[in-house]
Write a protein that binds this DNA or RNA. Structure first.
Lengths: 411, 411
DNA sequence: TGGGGTTAGTTTGGCGCTAAATAAAGTCAT
DNA sequence: ATGACTTTATTTAGCGCCAAACTAACCCCA
C-alpha cells in the first residue's frame, strides 16, 4: 500500500488559503486566520509549522493584546508573488500585472482585433510579452471575456460581441504560455475581485452589477461566484422589461440592455432631440444641467431600479454593489433609481443596501488577475485543475530569483 | 484526551444519507449508492458493514449483471420509518403521514384560525394527534408556511397572509411535541420534495415555480435549496413587471402576483365582463371555450412567460418545473406562455425545458414531510441542529415496536 | 475452457481536519 | 501582587473519508 491523498471535501486547500490570506489581508495572527478561513486553530498551528519550516511564511512582531495573550502576526516571506490579468474587448486587450495584495504593478493596453483569424494566437503573444516582463514568481494568468465561458479551467468561449464561438481560448493560451490560465466571464471576474478586496470582507452573498455598454451581474453566494447550470447566471442585461419594446442585440425585444445600455441611452437622447455621439458627451450635457439629458438618465435609473428590485427578490442578497464604465454618471441615474428600486422592493426587503464604486480602466483586468489570486479560496473548485496548478505554484515559492516560466513544458 | 468527532466538512452525514437513499430510491447496490452520493466505494463498504451489524440494513438478492460482477442490493430492514408533514394556510392545516419512500399513509385536514391568539398552540395539538396516531418510527415533523422563515431549525416565521409576525413556531412545537420540527417556506418544501422524488433524480439545479393564490419559486442549486441571505430567495411573485400597474397585497405596484395571482385573474375576468366568483368557475368557462376567459389566461401566460424568462436569465437553471393549485388550467395558460417564454429567452438559452406537474391537495403537506426525509442529504446544514436530531433518530432505528414519542423531554 | 474485459466490493495505509485539554501570555480589579 | 478572566497557541487522540491495490464474480469470445 502507499500514498493516499484524501481530500476530505475541503480538498487540501487550506494551506494555500493561508498563503492567499496573508497575501491579500497582510500580516495576520493565527487566530484571525482560523476565523477568516473558518477552520480550527489547531489546523492553522500545524500547517503554519510546515509553512514556516519551508520558509514561505515568517513570524513578525506581536500585535497589542486585546485583553489576553497578544497575537503573533504571520507574514509572507517574499511578497514578490503575483498574477497577470487581461481583459479582452472588441478593439483592445488591457493587461495588468498585480501583486498578491491587489496592487497594480504594471498596466498596458494593446490594440486587438478579435475578428482576425489568428486572434487567439495574437492574444497569446500579448500575454507572452507580459509573462516575460513579469518579475518575481508568477502564479498564473486570468482572462476576462465579455461572453459565456464553459468553465474557468477549460476556457471555451461563446462571445458574440467578439465574434467568437466555441473558441478554445484556455487550451491555446495554456499551451503557448506554460503557466496556468483561467478564463472567465468579465463580470464574474469583478465579482471575484470584490470577494477578495471589496464587499467580500464583510459579506458573503451579494450582487455585483455593471453598467456600461451592456448590463451585467455577478452573483456571489456564500463567498463563491455562482455560475449557473451552464455558466450563464447573472445575464440581467437580457431580463425582459416589457412584453414588447426596443430590439436588443441578442435578437429579442424589451431586454433591459435595450433600454439602458450605452447605445440605448444615446438613442433615447436622440429621440429627445439631443445630438450626442458618445455617453461622455451625454454625461457632460447632464452635468451642465441639460434637462433632456437628465431625463434620459432619470428614466434609465428608474428602469434599472425596477430590474434590480426583481433580481433582489429572486436572489435575496445582503447587499448590491454597482460599478462599470458607466458609473461616472451615477449622480444622474440616482434620482430615477432610488425611488424606483426602493419602491419596488417588498417592505421587508427595502433595507437592502447598495454601494456605488468608482471606476477606472484597469478594473476589468485587475478582476481577471483576481481570478488567479482567488484560487486558494476556491472551495467549490470552479478553477478546476488549473486552480490546483496555481496552488502548487504558490507552494513552490519564489523559485530561482527570477521566476520566468519555462515555456511549452506544461501539458 | 478523549472523543473528538471530526466533521470534515461533509459532517458525518454519509451514513444517514445511505439510509435515506435506500429509503427513497429503494434497494440499491453499494456501487450505485457510492455514485449517487458522490462518495468513494470504500466508504460505502465500511459504513455499510456497520449498518448491517446494527441491523438497520440488509443484503437482498443479486441484481442481474451488467457485464461484470453482479451487484448485491442493499435494503432497509424496516421501512416503518416515516415523517409527518403539515401545511398551514389561512383557514386550515393539512397533515399527512408519509413513509420514507414518499407514499402517503394518511391524510387529514383540520380547520384552523391563524388569527386566534393561541393559534400556534392549536397547531401543536393538531400535530400532537398526528404524532399519537403515527405507527412505526417517527423521524420528525416538517411544517410548511406561506411566508418567510429565518431558518428551518429555529423556525421563526414572518407570514403576512396568516397574520403572523415574529412567530416562534419551531420552538413552541418542538417543546410540546418532543420530536424534531423543521419549519420552512411552503414553496421551498415543494422544492425539497422535487429534489427527493422528482427532478432531483436527474438534475441538480432547477426552479420550482408555483401558480395559484400567489406565485412562488423555489431555487435548487447543486441539489440544495437556496434560501438567500435572509431566507427570502425566490420571491418572484413580487418581481415588478411594469413601472406602475395594479396594486399588490405587498403594498407595491406592478408585482407579477398582482397580474396573475388568483385574485388578479378574477379581476381581469371581471374587467372583461365575466361574472366569475372563483378560479374554478373561470377555468370552467375557458374549458367551455369562452373567448374572454381564454384571453384572461392567455394574457396571464404571456406575463408569466416573460417573468420566468427573466428569472432563467439570472439564475440559469437546467430546467423549470411548474405546479401549484392553479396548474389545472395550464392548457389555457400555455398559448400565452410558450411564445412569451421562448421569445424572451436569449438564443443560447431557448432550449431550457419546462415541466408541468399535476397537482393534488396533499402535495403541500407532502413537501413539508420531505423536509424531514431530506435531512440525510442536507450537506449545507440548512436543517441545523434539528437535522442532526433527525439523523440520530434515523440511526436509532425502529426502537420498541411502537415508536411513540416521550413528550416533553426534548430541549 | 480458459483467457481478456468489466463491473462490484474489500483491504489497507494514511491524510486532513477536528475537539478538548493544556499551556502561554497578557489585562484588569481589588 | 495575587487571583479571575481573556485571548492566543499547541498538543494529543482520533474520526471520516479517500486512493490504490486487490479480490470476487460475472460476461464474452475465440
Amino acid at each position: 500500500m502507499s500514498s493516499g491523498s484524501g481530500q476530505s471535501a475541503r480538498g487540501d486547500l487550506v494551506p494555500s488559503a493561508i498563503l492567499g490570506l496573508l497575501g491579500t489581508r497582510g500580516p495576520t495572527s493565527r487566530a484571525d486566520v482560523a476565523r477568516a478561513l473558518d477552520v480550527s486553530p489547531a489546523t492553522i498551528t500545524q500547517l503554519t509549522k510546515d509553512l514556516l519550516a519551508r520558509g514561505l511564511v515568517m513570524e513578525l512582531e506581536h500585535a497589542p493584546s486585546l485583553g489576553g495573550r497578544p497575537a503573533r502576526l504571520l507574514g509572507l516571506v517574499q511578497s514578490a508573488v503575483g498574477a497577470i490579468g487581461a481583459k479582452v474587448t472588441a478593439d483592445h486587450v488591457a493587461v495588468v500585472d498585480v501583486a498578491l495584495d491587489g496592487t497594480v504593478r504594471n498596466s498596458v493596453v494593446h490594440p486587438f482585433d478579435p475578428d482576425a483569424p489568428d486572434a487567439i494566437d495574437a492574444l497569446g503573444h500579448i500575454l507572452g510579452d507580459a509573462v516575460a516582463a513579469h518579475e518575481g514568481h508568477l502564479l498564473g494568468i486570468g482572462v476576462g471575456i465579455p461572453g459565456a465561458v464553459d468553465t474557468q479551467a477549460s476556457g471555451v468561449v461563446e462571445a458574440p460581441t467578439l465574434g467568437w464561438s466555441d473558441a478554445h481560448v484556455g487550451a491555446v493560451l495554456r499551451s503557448t504560455l506554460g503557466v496556468p490560465v483561467l478564463v472567465e466571464n468579465d463580470v464574474n471576474t469583478l465579482a471575484v475581485a470584490e470577494r477578495l478586496y471589496g464587499l467580500g470582507r464583510a459579506h458573503s452573498t451579494y450582487l455585483v452589477v455593471t453598467i456600461g455598454r451592456g448590463i451585467g451581474c455577478g452573483i456571489v453566494i456564500d463567498g463563491a461566484v455562482y455560475r449557473g447550470a451552464s455558466g450563464g447566471a447573472g445575464e440581467i442585461g437580457h431580463v425582459p422589461m416589457a412584453q414588447d419594446g426596443p430590439r436588443c442585440g441578442c435578437g429579442n425585444v424589451g431586454c433591459l440592455e435595450a433600454y439602458i445600455g450605452d447605445d440605448a441611452l444615446l438613442r433615447s437622447a436622440a429621440e429627445r432631440g439631443l445630438d450626442t455621439s458618445s455617453t461622455e458627451a451625454l454625461a457632460a450635457l447632464a452635468d451642465a444641467g441639460d434637462p433632456a439629458a437628465r431625463a434620459v438618465y432619470r428614466e434609465a435609473g428608474a428602469m434599472l431600479g425596477r430590474a434590480l428590485a426583481g433580481v433582489v427578490h429572486t436572489v435575496d442578497p445582503e447587499v448590491v454593489v454597482l460599478l462599470g464604465e458607466g458609473i461616472g454618471a451615477w449622480q444622474h441615474w440616482e434620482p430615477g433609481f432610488e425611488p424606483s428600486f426602493r419602491g419596488h422592493l417588498m417592505p421587508g426587503r427595502r433595507g437592502v443596501p447598495f454601494v456605488i464604486e468608482p471606476w477606472d480602466e484597469d478594473k476589468w483586468a485587475l478582476g481577471a488577475a483576481a481570478l488567479v489570486l482567488a484560487t486558494p479560496f476556491d472551495a467549490t473548485g470552479a478553477a478546476g485543475d488549473q486552480g490546483r496548478l496555481v496552488r502548487e505554484r504558490l507552494h513552490a515559492g519564489a523559485g530561482p530569483a527570477n521566476g520566468n516560466a519555462t515555456v511549452g513544458a506544461h501539458r
